[in-house]
């Protein structure tokens, strides 16, 4: 797809397009531009977002008539980018407009271009559904278009963790995305300010159910609450065995990095984590031993019963 930008004779080159838009919208409107892999991207200042889209459609030399795409990209601490892809059926040019949302991660907002392109209506609803970006001037972002109506949180933000992994660790070998270069498991520790997900909702429901019909909570040897352990367990791997080996590796790494000044903080955190994880593993091992002992006793009791009445069993 290399010859896309100069296919038809009257099509403007990226440089000419940028110059034209700078002329029409003012110098401050276009923040930057880049052509990579044959895709021409223009960064637009947010105040000029709506006007830029309108110009792209109405300017006879540009004539971007086919509304292709609109979505957001998580830019970590910097907030969110809204990207729209336009295509011109008359010149064959494709243009990507990109803008940074105002309001950072807390309350991202962006002007709506649903007045300019009809197709932007649903795309913006989807973007709001996935990222929580408010589009000013949109006829109605709610109800949520793809997720269920009472869904909590913004699923495509990076601080929203994949629920299935949070509730239950992946069985067997981890997927490549969750392993680092040497095959060690990358532990994902939730950060402060994370969006609440359905998992949190479940916890609230469970909490309410517990209040409605209280049951005496089983207490472990250390006095720790079993449910707390279960909740902690989703940070760790699925079994104590795996946990310890992963911990040993983490400890080795921490030692190796000890000389490095920059790694000191990370090392301290790793050690903290390691300590709590080790405690948990210890508790769990004790519980398992207890369960095994109980089971063995039961089995012994069963065997005694069977021995007392061998005739019945033989007949059966």
């Amino acid at each position: 797809m290399s010859g896309v930008l100069a296919r038809r004779d009257r099509a403007l080159t990226p440089e000419e397009t940028e110059e034209l838009l700078r002329d029409r919208l003012g110098e401050a409107a276009v923040v930057g531009s880049v052509v990579e892999y044959g895709v021409f991207t223009l960064r637009i200042a947010q105040e000029h977002w709506l006007e830029a889209a309108r110009r792209c459609r109405d300017e006879p030399l540009l004539a971007y008539d086919l509304f292709d795409n609109l979505f957001a990209v998580d830019m970590r601490e910097e907030g969110f980018d809204v990207v729209t892809v336009l295509y011109s059926t008359s010149t064959g040019n494709r243009l990507v407009l990109r803008t940074r949302c105002a309001g950072g991660r807390e309350a991202p907002t962006c002007p709506s271009i649903s007045d300019v392109y009809r197709g932007a209506n649903w795309m913006e609803r989807e973007t709001w559904d996935m990222f929580g970006i408010e589009f000013e001037g949109h006829p109605g972002l709610a109800p949520r278009i793809l997720t269920v109506e009472n869904f909590e949180g913004w699923p495509l933000r990076k601080d929203f963790h994949l629920v299935s992994r949070g509730v239950k660790p992946w069985p067997g070998v981890k997927e490549p995305a969750e392993l680092d270069e040497d095959g060690n498991v990358i532990e994902r520790v939730p950060r402060i300010g994370d969006a609440p997900g359905p998992y949190e909702l479940d916890k609230v429901i469970a909490e309410q159910a517990k209040l409605a019909n209280p049951v005496p909570e089983p207490v472990t040897a250390e006095g720790g609450n079993v449910e707390e352990l279960a909740q902690d367990a989703d940070l760790a791997s699925d079994s104590g065995q795996v946990l310890t080996s992963a911990d040993e590796q983490a400890a080795e790494e921490a030692e190796a990095q000890a000389s490095d000044v920059a790694a000191d903080v990370a090392g301290a955190q790793a050690q903290d984590l390691e300590q709590t994880a080790k405690d948990k593993a210890e508790q769990r091992r004790r519980e398992q031993a207890e369960a095994r002992r109980r089971k063995a006793e039961e089995r012994a009791a069963d065997a005694d019963d069977a021995g007392a009445a061998p005739d019945q069993e033989g007949n059966a």
Binding site: P155, L162, E175, P176, A177, E178
Partner: peptide, 12 residues
């Protein structure tokens, strides 16, 4: 809706 875009971010 099955969240393919999110799932894709967790797979190589």
């Amino acid at each position: 809706h099955r969240g393919f875009e999110k799932l894709a971010e967790y797979r190589d």
